[in-house]
Design a protein around this nucleic acid. Structure first.
Lengths: 207, 207
DNA sequence: ACTGTTATAGAACGAATGATCGGCTACGCT
DNA sequence: AGCGTAGCCGATCATTCGTTCTATAACAGT
């Protein structure tokens, strides 16, 4: 019962992502999002409690999309070849999955690569949203632990740290396209990942 | 002639950097900078034509500091050992020089690692400032060309691109300390640089 | 047709922003 | 001593922000 929605919630998040991707952080205002979908600020505040929650939902959706793509890429690689080299390729695939996401959801990929969560979101998100973000973060850690086990047979904080470097720290700098590249950024990323994996953990060499 | 300055221009830039580093992009307002040095907004607008020029000067100073540190690190390495391995270590030193800068000017280093120039500065900077930024960028390219020559004997767009990956793209993600690290980030960086350099250029292997 | 519920529209509000302006102060020079 | 210049101060401007508010529109159930 009640009046039907004029705009899907996803449309609002799409508009917000598009504004962020095309015009930058400063252009992402409540009014701009409302105008972009042909709505009003009032109805936007009926869909989201605050601007911060809108940004939080936007981030959560992008992160979910990313994790789904990354999970599948890792699964395929690990299943195809359960050797150490297979695990290395799985880690490269995990790092490269930003590029896969970009094909499906370009603005989501750009969002995740260009902005850190803390820089975009303020504190004090609604409890449920904060809980979902924590859950998702836990799932990402779990995926990294699986990679660590596949690589070195154990998932302690050293090995997981090395995987995190490859999967979290490396990709944004290498795949975000602000600098004109002549060679394929994915090649650079793969080389960097191999370099990091080859030197960790300290007392173990790849077979 | 004229009244002497109450606050050095560098003090204003220091205050701006400190605000940016400690409280983030949103806290860097004209009033906040003026308050931080115990001055007024009016006198700040006497020192800088606009907020944008203040940010531009801040960026320029940080970039100059960075290039100076990086230049010296590269020179020392290249001079000590003119072999290919020496050049590799020089490239690692260039990439690691964010860490050196952090010791001398912590907020400058954080500024350069955390914020992209285009994301912080608006267009339409004063001509002289824009020219100085271009000049500095040219000097950075020149330094990268020197590294490319030391590494592979030539500085074409492929080799310079590879050096740029190591020196420009890799360090911010690996050295910016938002994620708690257990192993030394500099080790990860060195490993990543070695990985990238080992796979470029396509038809050349390290001696 | 009436009622209840939900969504929308858009004006309005207070706070904060970048920028401007006129009056004032402290110095060097003659 | 008096003047010109450069710098400082702080009230003030118009604008824009996130948010709130009230009235209205569109549905479902009876």
């Amino acid at each position: 019962m009640g009046r039907p929605r004029k705009h899907d919630l996803d449309d609002l998040l799409d508009a917000a992502e598009a504004l962020l991707a095309e015009s930058g952080h400063g252009a992402l205002t409540v009014r701009a999002v409302a105008d972009a979908v042909g709505g009003s600020t009032g109805s936007l505040y009926h869909a989201f409690r605050s601007r911060n929650e809108l940004l939080g939902q936007m981030w959560l959706r992008a992160a979910r999309r990313f994790l789904a793509v990354q999970r599948e890429a890792v699964d395929v690689c690990l299943q195809r070849s359960p050797t150490h080299e297979g695990a290395v390729e799985a880690t490269i695939a995990a790092a490269s999955s930003y590029e896969l996401l970009r094909r499906q959801h370009p603005t989501s990929a750009q969002l995740l690569m260009e902005y850190r969560r803390d820089a975009l979101l303020d504190d004090g998100l609604p409890d449920e949203l904060a809980a979902q973000l924590r859950t998702l973060e836990g799932e990402l850690v779990e995926l990294m632990r699986r990679l660590a086990v596949a690589l070195w047979g154990r998932a302690d904080r050293y090995t997981v740290d090395a995987v995190a470097v490859c999967v979290v720290d490396l990709p944004p700098g290498l795949l975000n396209g602000w600098r004109p590249r002549v060679s394929d950024p994915l090649d650079s990323l793969a080389a960097a990942v191999r370099g990091v994996l080859a030197t960790t953990p300290p007392n173990r060499k790849p077979a």
